[in-house]
Design a protein around this nucleic acid. Structure first.
Lengths: 188, 188
DNA sequence: GCCCGCATGTAAGTGGTTACATGATTTG
DNA sequence: CAAATCATGTAACCACTTACATGCGGGC
């Protein structure tokens, strides 16, 4: 049920509609938790019916109406309770690693292009994160000093940056290994 | 459907029963893909009915009978086809990061113990991975030279090691940030 | 005239978790 | 005598994805 809590955090940072939340889940909070609009609309309705959120229907001209959600008392309490509970450290779900091990039973070189493609995606993400860091936290336009919320957002972003750097270095290692194996005869 | 492919890889590495696969998903292949026994039994039956696997029922004395599964032609073909397809680089699912951002709306210091606990789990995992690396790949008892399958298992393990090291360093950063915020007055 | 962005939703299906159930053998 | 290991399974539920559906307004 972490989607529920991710929504609470996002709406506490700033109230918004389901559509806007879906946008945020494509960047910002979405860097470490994803959700599609279908799922978001469903969970928003449930949370509103449970009294965690309040809705305000907003008529707009030259745009469809929207429902702006915001967190109310019980929602804030639910988040606070969750913060006091402990979660179990998650185990990885790394599909590419499964593929790499599977390559032992086929030609390892078929994976080279795939790994190169993934590497490029991670390079792009890293550049994106670094640009965001400069814009919001370390650049001349950033507020000084940062408040607690900004410090916490920054440390999470640093985690994303460290993850992308680590992943790129590892994919280089994978590529070197695949290329090395490609020069020797097949097997199995 | 990556569980299906993880099972194919694991059974190609060595045939086994549902129970044995469940054990393997607690270590080895389970380092980057998890599954419970219920799920494994369900998928094994489906894969067998689809002709990807063959079963051999094995009577054992002083132990329950077991069904040993192995990959047959169409299963190997399915794996090969999957290796040729491209998968989209997965996005993170990092519940702890959601909590950290959520801490801005509560007392950040409540998270210190939780983060310390996670840090310890990652330290233990790292030690476990390093022991496995020494045993299977870099120690004196390791085969030399390694074959392609072992090289690929090793590069995946190196990825796990890099991930744990990066995570521990990041959690240190998180702890330093939380402790720093704890010394200043609350907010929001 | 077509596609994109804004905005919300239904329906069907897959993947995955949790709880419950059974029963023999081995280990402390 | 209790607990853990081996071994397989059912049932109910929850989380998540994919496909489909609608409709207005603005830009190329």
């Amino acid at each position: 049920m972490a989607l529920e809590h991710a929504i609470l955090v996002s709406l506490l940072e700033k109230p918004g509609s389901g559509y806007e939340l879906a946008r945020r889940f494509e960047r910002s909070i979405g860097y470490f938790w994803t959700a599609t609009h279908q799922q978001i609309y469903r969970v928003l309705r449930r949370m509103e019916s449970e009294g965690l959120l309040a809705v305000r229907e907003l008529s707009q001209q030259s745009r469809p109406d929207k429902k702006v959600y915001s967190v109310v008392g019980p929602g804030r309490a639910a988040l606070s309770q969750w913060l006091h509970e402990s979660i179990q450290p998650e185990s990885m779900r790394h599909e590419l690693a499964v593929k790499i091990r599977g390559a032992a039973f086929d030609d390892p070189s078929v994976l080279i292009r795939e790994v190169e493609r993934h590497r490029q995606v991670h390079i792009d993400r890293l550049a994106h994160y670094l640009a965001g860091e400069l814009r919001d936290f370390t650049g001349p336009a950033a507020p000084t000093p940062l408040d607690a919320g900004q410090e916490l957002q920054h440390v999470v972003l640093r985690g994303g940056i460290a993850y992308e750097r680590m992943t790129i270095a590892w994919l280089d290692d994978v590529l070197a290994t695949l290329r090395r194996l490609g020069t020797s005869p097949p097997h199995v």
